[in-house]
Design a binder for these strands. Sequence first.
DNA 1: CCCCAGGCTTTTC
DNA 2: GAAAAGCATGGG
Length: 312
Amino acid sequence: MLNRFIIHSKNNISITDTLFSGQSFQWNIELFDHVYYISIIDSVPLFIRAVSSNEFEVYSPYKQIKCIPLSEFICSYFSLDVDTEKVFPENFHELHPYLWELLTQYFPLRILRQDPFETIISFMCAQGIGMHLIRKQISMLTEMYGEKRTVTFKGKEVVLHNFPTPERLAAADPFALSRCTNNNRIRAANIITASRRVAEGKIDFETLHNRDIPLDELRRTLSENSGIGFKIADCIALFGLGRFDAFPIDTHVKQYLGAWFNSATALRPLSPASYLMMDAEARRLLKPEFAGYAGHILFHCWRKEIKKLRSF
DNA sequence: CCCCAGGCTTTTC
DNA sequence: GAAAAGCATGGG
């Protein structure tokens, strides 16, 4: 029997956008009866449906997740504690009126507070590759290495897969795993190494979760791992460690910094030096403590409004 | 064959 | 030290 929860948000929230907003491709996103979204987090299956602009219902066989009441976990997971009106500086709409027009419709987007290990692996799959292929890789990883679960929902059987554990990926055969990484052997090897370091405690999320760690130190620590550079390190901080101040700069962010904010640095080739310069510029344009959160909204706005990309 | 896709690593100056 | 080239793979 499934428990039912109603989750309220003080801001508008778009389930569709939110589900696709972070790199949460482990979600087994399937449209169920064109209404429900099916997902699994930390072995807990969730069935989610928007019932209005600022509330949605969740069905699950369990009442809690990670020893936290489910409704509480979901508030945290969807960042419902963040007031999206306050993510941008007060005078931002005056400085950028044209951009503001495009931007406000993306406020329902939510940054998800995702599991750090999931985030590391997901973003390691996202180097110089299209969104379509990134999601394919994550799906294959969960299907091949994640524990299978079947749940009955509204009389139908639904098959889900947990995200693989660090131990499972650490023990994987590199060649076999490369089937899940777009046949990229180097990426597969890096994923195995990183998983082993997590399993051995050499990458310790308890420690990394400390919000007193300065961003540049966090970035340096994470990017010591092979296959993780500045951008992916910042993605891990933003999506996996709840550091909404972290501002990952990828090809799209670089483009909109040039086009929307006249950044001269953004017109130059990307390098560690120019990365840090753009990072500093973004902190002046945005609220430093929410630079990454705002950047993520700008990111999706750029992709959809300017680049005309259809999928998240 | 070209270029691009939510970059990273190694080589070269 | 920093800029440039190399890398790896699939898709348009």
